[in-house]
Amino acid sequence: MVQPLGYLKESASQTAGPYVHIGLTPNFSGIDGVYESDLGAIMVTDKTLGRRITITGRVLDGTGTPLKDALLEIWQADAAGLYNSPSELRGSADPNFSGWGRSATDGVTGEYRFETIKPGRVPFKDGRLMAPHISVWIVARGINLGLNTRLYFGDEEAANAEDPVLARIEHRVRVPTLVAMADGDTYRFDIHLQGDKETVFFDI
């Protein structure tokens, strides 16, 4: 016999289901008056430091049909590359930027949308800088465990070329699935759940 480790098992995930918007974006889903506003709907104020950008796109299933019942959350560093989190030990992040946003996909077009700022660079575990990126989490009906991916920026070619996470993608043809294309200050990032263009998802 050995001493028991005493660890617990993580609660198993279950799909967010078709009505995730009721729980996480009730005002968007038409349930007014319970919360003043939906959490994560507004990321940026006048005081937030950094370049304003828009991120928009769709989540597409294996037939190329956009999901109209999905929910996305993003998590990113501030303009100086600091996270607004107690676990951030490198310095204090911009107090006017939480770094976290939440968006429901539209019931007609399937588009999600975030108004945010361009994040700064943050270090990989070995101290090398990663390219500017945003962590993305996707849940929906039919997704049994939330999917994690990253958005990188199409106009950061030099930084992307030396990014240690992108470098780990063996099949180089898949790297563009993580790169949002710039059109002025708007970045378009479609997420493909399946198929030739299947987005690289992470086991983080």
């Binding site: 989190s85 951030e88 939480s98 976290w100």
Partner: peptide, 8 residues
């Protein structure tokens, strides 16, 4: 990485 271990 720091991007995954931190959170709001």
């Amino acid at each position: 990485t720091v991007s995954e271990i931190t959170g709001p």
